[in-house]
Every structure is written in structure tokens, then in C-alpha cells.
Design a protein around this nucleic acid. Structure first.
Length: 418
RNA sequence: GUGGCUAUAGCUCAGCAUGGCAGAGCACCAGAUUGUGGAUCUGGCUGUCGAGGGUUCAAAUCCCUCUAGCCACCCCA
């Protein structure tokens, strides 16, 4: 019989198998617990959004320009798989009338994001993020709060050796003038910049500071710094964020070259890395303030600040840190019945299920083989069932760890397993 | 998107320079042990050698294309 190639997972997509799922559950639970402890409520938004929502919000960023999953549906709508969560959460904030509630709306979301880039370890086309957003307030205290949530989450997971990079990129009041200064500084040097940077000089000069191409590095040192050209409000906010972080004991490093690829960010920007990680795909999270986003989406101007952390990388790091997350056995009790006793086995399992997770071994194998399987699965007890025992409504209850075995009536099983 | 490395049993890999019967360990199955797991011993099963094409009497081995994984760049989570 001709066999065709088995169908494999799509490039860049991966399965989280049961044994890995345990560590993910720990990371997700810590995320939800920490977010809730700061008064953040969970929200779920669609994976699919109008392409325009995504595109309006970050035209010149790689995530949108080169890595967006775009497609048209059967109705001819131009759609996209979300590459990040903020745009959708802000949309939901207005559509769900959360702007009618006392500001700020404190929200968190855990879910998959999609970017069409070249897969590598720690970089997948579908990846999972914890997203935390505080929408409706321009208080710099919320910038610090969001950072504290991020730091607390990672700390809870045992990740202590971290580096928090912090910067401000001004706002619509002071940034335009600064960008002109930056352009004026770089224009005479244009020929010496690499291709992308030459183009960005006019479209998005802030990205010049973030460039890592060697030939562009020498010019950064003398480039004008935004922190020297902030407006009054931004100066005050910048000082407040740092004061609050200092008070909370969170260490950070000022990085004048840290900018965000997305256009809607204002003022605070930050990224979190493992302290000693020299690898490339190692950013654990990042975020910042996006006071221009709501307006870019066509909603009333509304400030906001948020954080996105990568679950894939965080779980990887927790694992690498040697944290033992032992997956609980799929079933605590396994029923091993002789052939033809499936109905009785299911009955017994049903009784036990009131107090323990129970699986029945329906395979036609020797008892020895079934014992081996139960042992491998990590079962705490096995129940042995023969025709004669079914007749008498009893089972042999064996505790695996001690090897002790007793005969128990079916009705008494729950109390023996409690 | 650019450059490089890799792909052989369910898993980890050897075999490939110099073409000549498809291998090992682990896992799995069975027995040693007459319904009873873990340790040990014995035996057994398992393959389109990633896919497609080319060279050759002969290809896992040499050549080309594709696909996928990994590494660096890039980007970021």
C-alpha cells in the first residue's frame, strides 16, 4: 500500500506536550496571580483582527511591515493574525465600553501572537505572551506599576538575574522637535549609514539609535539625546517613573538608545533580559507607554501603558534554571481488569472518580505488562479485577509505593483512596 | 529576509572522505517469575536512510532542487 508523507506541524508552529505543559501552567498561574494581585482583570480578545488595525499602528516596524500574517476571508475582509496584543486590547477597551468605568482599566491577557519570521530556538511564528495594560490614565505611577508587575512575575518564577533597561522617548509635544535635531545631526552622515538607516533617517529616525549594524555605531555617541530635549510634562513624568522604581527596589539601567519599534509608544519604554544571556533571542519582555495609540485606531485620544512578556522564553529559562516541575500523573488510580470485564472496570472507575483521577487499562496485554504501564504512568494505586472479584463486588487495591495490597469492597473504595 | 550546519528505527545517534546485504544503545513486546510494577538476565519487533530528481552495473553514501530543524545575522517576545 502506498504511503504518503505524514503531515507535520506548520513551520514555526509547535506543540506544547503534556510534560511541558506543567511548567507552562506554573508560568501562567503566576502571571494571572500577580496581575490579579495588582487589581488587573483578565480579558480575551480575538486572534484575528482587521489588518488595518495592526497596520495603522506600526507601519515601519518589522513586526508589521515584514512579519504580519495577512489574509482575506471569504467575505473579502482584509484580516491579520495579531502580532502583539495591545492594539486589540485597546480596541476592546472602547468597544466594550470599559472607558465608561473609572480609569484606568487594568487588564491582562494571555494568548498566542503570530509573526512570520524565520524560526529559531526561542523564536516561533506562534508564540505566547502575557500582556498587561493600564488604559485611560497618563499617571507615571502606572508606568512603574506595570514594570513592577513584570518584575514580580519573573521573580515569582525564580528568575532573579535580570536586566531591566529603561528609557523615555518623549511625546507628541517634544518628540517632533527632537526628531528634527536627530535628522539634522545624521543628515551629513547619511552616506555612511547602512541601507535601512538611510531610509529611516526620514521616515523613523528614532530607529537609528537602535541600529546594531557596526558601521552605524560610531555616530551614536554624539547624537542628541531625547532626555536633554524633553518637554516639561515628559520631564516630570520621567522623574516620577524613576522615583517610583527606586522606591520599589527594582533595579534598572538607563539606556539612551532604547527605543521601541512601534510608532505609538510615548515616554517610558523598557525591555527585560536575562542578566547573563548573551544569546540573541533572549528578550523576556518589554513595554511602554502608548498615549497615541487609541487615536491612531480612530478612537478618542486616550493614554495607556503596558507590558508584554514571552511565555515561550520564560518557560525555557525556568527549565534551564533547573527548576523541577514534576508533571502530576495523568491518573492517580489505574484499573486493571481481566479480559471481558470492561463494563465492571468502568463501573469501578466511576466509583473511584469521586475522589481520585482514574484511568482504565483496556489493552489486551498480560497483567504484568499492565502493571508495568501503570508504574510508568506514575499511578499511586492500581485496582485488580478478576471475574470472581466482580462476582463478589470487591477489588484488590494495591498501593504502588509500598507494594501493599488489600481486598476492598467497591462501595468502600472512596474512603480507602481519600 | 541573508549566510552556515544538519536530516538514517518511536528516541539519541554510528555508517557517508574511498558507492557494494541497514547498524548500536535506549524505548517497546515477550519470557525467566502459572493473574502482580520498579533491578537483572534472555529473546523478539521496528526502516520509502526527510521528499523529489540526476550520475552509476550498483546510491544512506556523489550531484541538483525542495521541505523541515538548529546556529549566527536581523528582529524582537
Amino acid at each position: 500500500m502506498p504511503r504518503s508523507e505524514p503531515i507535520k506541524a506548520v513551520r514555526g508552529m509547535r506543540d506544547i506536550l503534556p510534560r511541558e505543559r506543567a511548567i507552562w501552567r506554573v508560568a501562567e498561574k503566576a502571571a494571572a496571580d500577580v496581575a490579579r494581585s495588582f487589581g488587573y482583570a483578565e480579558i480575551v480578545t480575538p486572534v484575528i483582527e482587521h489588518a488595518e488595525l495592526i497596520e495603522r499602528v506600526g507601519e515601519d516596524t518589522d513586526a508589521v511591515a515584514k512579519e504580519l500574517y495577512r489574509f482575506d476571508d471569504r467575505g473579502g475582509r482584509h484580516l491579520a493574525l495579531r502580532p502583539e496584543a495591545t492594539a486589540g486590547v485597546v480596541r476592546a477597551y472602547f468597544e466594550g465600553h470599559l472607558n465608561q468605568e473609572p480609569p484606568p482599566a487594568r487588564l491582562f491577557l494571555i494568548g498566542p501572537m503570530f509573526r512570520y519570521n524565520r524560526p529559531q530556538k526561542g523564536r516561533y511564528r506562534q508564540f505566547f505572551q502575557l500582556d498587561v495594560e493600564a488604559i485611560g490614565s497618563d499617571s507615571p505611577a502606572l508606568d512603574a506599576e506595570v514594570i513592577e508587575i513584570a518584575a514580580t512575575w519573573l521573580h515569582e518564577l525564580g528568575l532573579r538575574e535580570l536586566r531591566l533597561e529603561l528609557n523615555t522617548i518623549g511625546d507628541s509635544k517634544c518628540r517632533p522637535a527632537y526628531l528634527e535635531l536627530l535628522r539634522a545631526y545624521y543628515r551629513p552622515l547619511q552616506d555612511q549609514l547602512h541601507g535601512d538607516c538611510q531610509r529611516r533617517l526620514e521616515t523613523n529616525p528614532l530607529l537609528l539609535l537602535d541600529c546594531k549594524v557596526p558601521q552605524c555605531q560610531p555616530f551614536k555617541v554624539d547624537a542628541p539625546r531625547i532626555t536633554d530635549h524633553l518637554c516639561e510634562e515628559c520631564t516630570v513624568a520621567w522623574a516620577a517613573v524613576r522615583r517610583l522604581l527606586d522606591a520599589s527596589g527594582i533595579e534598572y539601567r538607563l539606556d539612551p538608545y532604547l527605543v521601541r519599534g512601534l510608532d505609538y509608544y510615548t515616554r517610558t519604554v523598557f525591555e527585560i533580559y536575562p542578566a547573563n544571556g548573551e544569546g540573541a533571542q533572549d528578550a523576556l519582555g518589554g513595554g511602554g507607554r502608548y498615549d497615541g495609540l487609541a487615536e491612531a485606531e480612530g478612537w478618542p485620544p486616550t493614554p495607556g501603558v503596558g507590558f508584554a512578556g514571552g511565555l515561550d522564553r520564560v518557560t525555557e529559562l525556568v527549565k534551564a534554571g533547573g527548576a523541577e516541575v514534576i508533571a502530576a500523573p495523568a491518573a492517580e488510580v489505574v484499573v486493571l481488569a481481566d479480559a471481558g470485564l470492561d463494563v465492571a472496570a468502568a463501573d469501578v472507575a466511576r466509583i473511584c472518580r469521586t475522589v481520585r483521577s482514574v484511568a482504565v487499562d483496556y489493552e489486551s496485554k498480560s497483567l504484568k505488562a499492565k502493571m508495568r504501564s501503570a508504574n510508568k504512568l506514575g499511578a499511586r494505586w492500581v485496582l485488580l479485577l478478576s471475574a470472581a472479584e466482580v462476582e463478589r463486588r470487591v477489588v484488590q487495591l494495591k498501593e504502588m509505593a509500598s507494594g501493599e495490597q488489600v481486598e476492598v469492597g467497591w462501595a468502600d473504595l472512596p474512603s480507602h483512596l481519600a
